[in-house]
Design a protein around this nucleic acid. Structure first.
Lengths: 239, 239
DNA sequence: GAGTGGTCTAGACCACCTT
DNA sequence: AGGTGGTCTAGACCACTCC
């Protein structure tokens, strides 16, 4: 049988939306058994591959779970999981239509502290590149970036002009990102951070720590300190 | 032609991994044109649908971008985007193998403040249900949960025993989650939060604000205050 | 017109779970 | 054995972009 015209909504989306609406409306609730692929094939008069694609995508979106030999079920929605973007400050500020300025406070070679060594998988005291940069949005400091870089991954790090390109951007060019771990916490700023941000040491800060890897090797460990009053992480989730 | 045995790795994964490795190793860098579907069909001797699935999943994972009529390209990896789970405290604590206790400090009907009204899409002064609960992990307070609930969505909210079931859990049962917005910031605790957490008003806190929707209607707005030293959000990303 | 991706079919074999 | 999902094929038509 020839398929229906393509000008309209794709068939797999019709199947997806049918299930999505049924779940959003409470027609099926968490744990319920959904119609089988075969049943949906009959209902929508499409091929099994089409139904299968719809269901696979719903799994990917976390809305349903499937068990081979058993069936498809509405997923437990107890977690609100959402994509959080930890972006390059430069892009983020430009996107808000504001001016970005970076002040390089330090850019040197140093010896890895025990913590830096552990984070980067180096030996204690091994050489590391260190940078300390303040990022300003329309002239107001919003982020202190303290970074340790594995010299093996970016030998020319110290020769870059980080008023023109952010370390994040540069490192992504040099070492393709394969993995990242991050941690978000609230903390008081150290003396240095407070001075660079122009805030009191009693003002709370949002601190993001991040270690990024390329081809299984730790490239850089960074600590981003933001004044609590001037920076928020935001996100949304939609089923 | 019959396809090769299924016992081994699926064919679409072979294609995916081939491209993934090429990108991770720097063989292709951001912006590069990847082989066309047809070329990959020839290279792996599989059908086009199989290659297509591999490529679609790589798009979904943010590793590549595709343009109809033009080709497939390595995506710009400037953002580190990751799934951040904002979980039910109860589950989270149990998963760590610890004891969870909830102390209900208040559970009442009140009038919406202007902010609550705006968040829940109600009129100022409209009735709302309010709850104030402290969550403890092994006896140590780690979260103050201040919540406003739209009575239309959960008429029996005030009759629940929130020492036995968390509001998050209860509300998800009553009103299927369809959307959520959240915001994460660092702030100092108010007098109430500091007292309930047993910390000083000068100790920084990680504050998560979240509004959740069901079928397009705002169900609840919550403010979760965590002592900075005792709570972190964590995540990881992998290409 | 040639090449690309977007979607779809009508079958197929397999692995898995339940009975 | 019968139903379920997991994967795969060898075609097909379409929309889009580039030359």
């Amino acid at each position: 049988m020839p398929r229906s015209p393509v000008t309209s909504e794709p068939q797999y989306l019709k199947v997806k939306n049918h299930l999505r609406e049924g779940i959003a409306s409470g027609h099926w609730v968490a744990g319920d058994l959904l119609p089988s692929e075969g049943a949906l094939v009959g209902l929508f008069e499409v091929s099994r591959m089409t139904v299968n694609r719809a269901l696979r995508e719903l799994v990917q979106e976390g809305l349903i779970e499937r068990v081979q030999g058993v069936g498809s079920f509405v997923a437990q929605l107890h977690r609100i999981s959402s994509t959080l973007n930890v972006r390059d400050v430069h892009e983020e500020i430009l996107e808000r239509g504001h001016q970005h300025e970076a002040r390089v406070q330090a850019l040197t070679k140093g010896k890895a502290t025990p913590q830096q060594a552990a984070e980067l998988g180096l030996k204690r005291g091994a050489p590391v590149f260190l940078s300390l940069i303040v990022h300003l949005e329309n002239g107001v400091p919003i982020q202190v970036e303290e970074r340790a870089v594995n010299p093996a991954c970016a030998p020319d790090y110290l020769a870059q002009d980080f008023t023109q390109i952010t370390p994040t951007h540069y490192l992504l060019q040099v070492a393709p990102l394969s993995e990242a771990r991050y941690m978000i916490e609230a903390a008081l700023p150290g003396e240095v951070e407070a001075r660079l941000l122009g805030i009191s040491r009693r003002d709370p800060c949002l601190v993001v720590k991040r270690i990024t890897y390329s081809r299984g090797v730790a490239v850089t460990a960074v600590r981003l300190t933001h004044p609590g009053g001037r920076y928020q992480l935001q996100g949304s989730f939609s089923a």
